[in-house]
């Protein structure tokens, strides 16, 4: 039972692996472009969580925190660009289905 009560590095790695898997399944399964973006946010979050867990349990410095901060910065920029692209696709296709968005230009 010590595995259940003693929270260690492996617990966070498993949580992160579950989040990564769910994010990947969302990207594969959902057809709404905004839902796919949500899946990508889950993927980025699971990676950042891994960085912080390693920083806490293995290296005891702040490098993992800095990596997570830069992941958040990139996620913010990425969400802006993706939403702009989705708005363009919507005004062109009148739909945000990623299967129908198969043209790079009109």
């Amino acid at each position: 039972m010590s595995f259940l009560t003693e929270i260690g590095l492996n617990h966070f790695l498993v949580v992160s692996a579950l989040m990564f898997t769910l994010g990947m399944m969302i990207v594969v399964m959902r057809r709404n472009a905004v839902a796919v973006l949500m899946g990508i946010e889950l993927l980025l979050n699971s990676a950042a969580l891994n960085f912080v867990a390693f920083s806490r349990y293995v290296s005891h410095d702040l490098n993992g925190h800095l990596a997570a901060i830069f992941i958040i910065v990139v996620a913010a920029a990425e969400a802006t660009i993706i939403l702009a692209i989705i708005l363009n696709i919507f005004s062109h296709n009148h739909s945000v289905n990623v299967d129908e968005a198969d043209l790079l230009s009109q």
């Binding site: 990947m24 399944m25 594969v28 399964m29 709404n32 839902a35 945000v96 289905n97 299967d99």
Partner: peptide
């Protein structure tokens, strides 16, 4: 077509299973 599609459940489970 914009909802999660049942036909994509199998590929999604396979992908998720392999990754997990």
């Amino acid at each position: 077509s914009q909802l999660a599609q049942k036909r994509l459940l199998v590929p999604a489970v396979i992908t998720g299973g392999i990754i997990l």
